[in-house]
Every structure is written in C-alpha cells, then in structure tokens.
C-alpha cells in the first residue's frame, strides 16, 4: 500500500489530519537575495496552508543579521498575529554584552520561551561563546531546546564543542541544524546523536542528499530527527517533498514531521 504521505505529494494535497511542525523557519527579507512577497508572516502562513503545516517556529532574518533584539520583537509580534501558527525562537547574538543578553532572556521569559536559536556562522563566533552561557544555564533549568546553525568552536572541557556542551548541560536539547546536508554532515552528526542522548538532528537544508533521511533513520532512529524548512529563506516545499518521498515508514514520518517537535518544544 502506498504511503499516505507519498500519495499526498503526488496529488499536491495538503497534509490534513497530520501534525506538521516546521521547527526551523525564519521570517522577513534578507540582504543576500530576493525573497518574493518579502517573507512576511502572512506569506509564510499562506505557504504553510498549502502544505498542511500547522506551526512554524521562527527566527526572523534580521536576528541572524544585524539586530537580534529587533528580530525577537518581530517574532513575538508575528506569533500574536498568527496564534498557534507562528511561534518564536529567542535568538541571541553573543557579540553583544552579557548584560544585554540576560535582559533579553528575562524580557521574553515574561511572554514565554519555547526555545533559542543561535547562528554562530552569521555572527562569526564559536557555538561555545561565553555570552551564550546565560542561555545554556536558562535552558538547563527549564529543559529547553537550542537550535544552532552549527555547534563548532573551541573545545569545552577538553572535548569537541558539542560533546562538551551536551555533557555539561544534559537537560538541554541541542539541535544540529542542516544535519543531513551532505554525507560528511550525515556521518558526523549521526555519530554525535548516537553518543549524546540530548542531541537531535534537523533536516533543514537546500542540499537534498540522496537517501540521507532514510540512512539517518537507520543509524539513529526517527525519534532523533526533527523537520524544518528554512521558510522563507528557502521555499518549504522541497524540504517537505524530500520527507514525503523518503523510503521510511509513515509512522517514522509522523515523528520527524511533527511529533518530535511537539515533544522537544513542549507544544
């Protein structure tokens, strides 16, 4: 019998009756290229409706660029305009003073925080920058996830960055963004997920490496993989199509496409 997900893909049918959560989204315009419709929250929700995505967790592009505080404000504003459809990450740029970062966390804590977003590459820093530590400590206390574009940098407690951090903060879920984009990342990131129980792998990425999703499921299990799209940085359809077509069971697809995010983000 054909997968209900694969059937929906071929017919262009929105995924009705399934919990689909995009755990890696952005919002707005970006200096580096043109995004039709300017990546507005309304355009994102429209795109989500066409596919059947219930919720997207967003970090506006301005957060990973020049002004994380303005982006956090925009994310919370969008969440108010589209309740339940858009949820905010709190994004942190550790190049700013620790006092400002602590104030930012305290400010959004009053509104409710479900997770944080780091972009060490855009912010040109290590994933273990000392100004990220208030976030690690906050997430350790609350049991919250952090999605980071990468988890590379200086050793932590004499170990590779991610290994040191994940052991130091065991209640934090460390989500490796773009974890399956290429065989090098698949090998490295699956090994990390096997070694560290609090590490999850994010599927987001423009490079749809052949068979990488089924291979990652074989290596670490579907419960360790979380789905995202980069919408509207990237159109959400390719990332969804890759999942719907993957040679894995429909139950595994349900975990990756939504149930894992529901669990990790406490939704």
């Amino acid at each position: 019998m054909e997968s209900v997900f694969k059937f929906a893909l071929h017919m262009g049918e929105a995924l009705k009756g399934e919990l689909i959560i995009d755990a890696h989204a952005h919002m707005g315009t970006w200096y580096n290229f043109h995004i039709p419709e300017n990546g507005t929250p309304a355009s994102m929700v429209h795109a989500m409706d066409l596919l059947g995505i219930r919720t997207s967790i967003v970090s506006p592009h301005i957060c990973i660029g020049p002004c994380y505080t303005e982006g956090n404000r925009a994310a919370y504003q969008a969440a108010k305009e589209f309740p339940g459809r858009i949820l905010p990450f709190v994004t942190i740029n550790p190049n700013y003073p620790e006092s400002e970062i602590i104030a930012e966390i305290e400010h959004w804590d009053k509104e409710g925080i479900i997770g944080f977003k780091f972009h060490p590459q855009c912010h040109n820093c290590d994933a273990c920058h000392k100004h990220y530590y208030p976030v690690f400590e906050f997430c350790q206390e609350r049991g919250l996830p952090i999605l980071s574009h990468n988890w590379t940098g200086a050793p932590v407690n004499g170990k590779d960055t991610l290994y040191g951090l994940a052991e130091m903060f065991p209640r934090v879920t460390f989500i490796i963004a773009h974890a399956l984009s290429g065989w090098g990342p698949v090998d490295t990131n699956c090994a990390a997920a096997k070694a560290l129980p609090n590490v999850m792998l994010d599927t987001t990425g423009s490079l749809l490496t052949y068979d990488a999703v089924p291979e990652a499921v074989r290596r670490v299990g579907a419960e360790r993989i979380i789905w995202g799209t980069d919408n509207p940085f990237i159109d959400p359809r390719p990332g969804l199509g890759r999942m719907l077509m993957a040679r894995i069971s429909d139950d595994d697809k349900r975990l990756i496409l939504g149930l894992n995010a529901k669990r990790v983000f406490g939704l």
């Binding site: 071929h10 749809l208 052949y210 999703v213 890759r242 999942m243 077509m245």
Partner: peptide, 19 residues
C-alpha cells in the same frame, strides 16, 4: 531532479504543491 545524487521528492513537491 539531480538523480542519483539528490532526492527526487523535493523537486516533485515544488511542482505538485505549486499554486
């Protein structure tokens, strides 16, 4: 699609889910 280096599902979705 870019087969056999990249998955076909993504490019197919771009078209089947196009408005």
């Amino acid at each position: 699609t870019g087969l056999p280096l990249t998955d076909a599902g993504g490019p197919i979705a771009q078209i089947t889910y196009a408005e």
